[in-house]
């Protein structure tokens, strides 16, 4: 690990001053420290924000505000999350292990980096790790890579589960800017596609600190998080789907779907949601939804299987979420 300067912040102003000077915030550290050991991340300074008061899950009107430092364990165990936003609890529990979730935080989880093999292999070119060096996954082993929204510079995927559920729920990320203001970004717009700047995973600007994630009023309906992976526990998604669907008199009254494992960001396609609303569930309808989702999907060799897998998973999730069975 490269040497770094360590400072602990006790309040947000202190943290913001240090991040404005280039320090990287560290909370749980489960991803950042791993990457620092491998010298993929080499920050000159860390600011430990664990003692900044950014914890707690508090209602704000109909909304529910999850502090940036709330651990994944605490979030998934919270009674309100389990009752009103079960898709979020399910998605969190589908990721990592109890040990990691006890450290991993809400904000840190959003900012976790790709698990692309070549991003981790400092012997190989990677535009995300070293801009301009090339992409080894294109033409290489790309079993876990993107089939939607990739670019010639990068075909990495966003690896997380929690953010996929937050996308389906249309949650908002609350951010403290370096100038001391607050701005809000929908989770759906927080992560970026790689384009020609894959080194930027999300829209956070230098010096900014995530302060909370805000869930809108409970959406009701049926919630499903389905994750397809190589082993049944402690593995990243090949394909995952978060679905929140409300039925009314045999037709779909509202639908919000988000997809993991397919792209550089949790994938949300409002055309898919819109197609389903007002319709009576049928396999033909679900096929149409998959056609729309996967229009333009492109495999890169070893990840070609993800395209039919995404279709099958979507159909299975839609059958489950629109069915009568509890």
């Amino acid at each position: 690990m490269k040497p770094f300067e360590y400072n602990r912040a006790n309040d947000l102003d202190h943290a913001a001053r240090l991040t404005s000077d280039g320090a990287r915030p560290i909370a749980g550290g489960t991803n950042l420290l791993d990457l620092m050991k491998l010298e993929i991340e080499t920050p000159d300074a860390l600011v430990d924000i664990n003692r900044v008061p950014l914890g707690g899950i508090e209602p704000d009107g109909d909304e529910l505000r999850i502090g940036a430092l709330v651990t994944n364990s605490a979030c998934a165990a919270d009674e309100r999350i389990r009752r009103d936003y079960p898709v979020l609890a399910r998605a969190i529990l589908a990721g990592a292990t109890f040990q990691l979730r006890n450290k991993a935080t809400t904000a840190g989880n959003l900012c976790q980096r790709t698990r692309c093999y070549y991003f981790y292999n400092t012997e190989m070119p990677c535009n995300k790790r070293e801009p301009g060096s090339g992409c080894s996954a294109i033409g290489g082993f790309n079993r876990i890579h993107a089939v939607l929204g990739a670019s010639d510079a990068c075909i990495a995927t966003y690896p997380g589960d929690m953010a996929v559920a937050l996308c389906a729920l249309n949650a908002t990320v609350e951010i403290a800017t370096a100038e001391g203001h607050t701005r809000s970004v929908p989770v759906r717009a927080f992560h970026r596609l790689p384009d020609d700047a894959p080194e930027r995973d999300n829209v956070l600007e230098p010096g900014e600190v995530i302060t909370a994630v805000v869930l809108p009023a409970p959406p009701g309906g049926k919630h499903v998080y389905r994750k397809v992976r190589d082993r049944s526990s402690y593995a990243f998604a090949l394909v995952s789907i978060a679905a929140v669907v409300r039925m009314d008199g045999g037709a779909i009254a509202s639908a919000a779907l988000a997809f993991g494992g397919l792209a550089h960001k949790p994938w949300h396609d409002e055309r898919v949601d819109a197609l389903l609303v007002g319709e009576v569930p049928s396999d033909a309808l679900f096929d149409k939804a998959a056609d729309l989702l996967l229009d333009g999907a492109q495999g890169h060799g070893t990840n070609d299987f993800k395209i039919p897998m995404a279709r099958r998973t979507l159909k299975a999730v839609l059958r489950e979420v629109t069915g009568d069975a509890e």
Binding site: Y6, R8, I26, G28, G29, T30, L33, D34, K37, D48, N50, S73, T97, F98, Q99, L100, N102, K103
Partner: peptide, 29 residues
């Protein structure tokens, strides 16, 4: 593994289990 994958380093901090390889001692004052 020293990378949070195997769990051999699991300890309890304030009663909760964590991977001691993926946290800095200085953060636990």
């Amino acid at each position: 593994c020293d990378h949070g994958q195997c769990g051999a380093c699991t300890v309890l901090v304030n009663g909760q289990r964590i991977n001691s390889c993926l946290t800095l001692a200085v953060m636990h004052d």
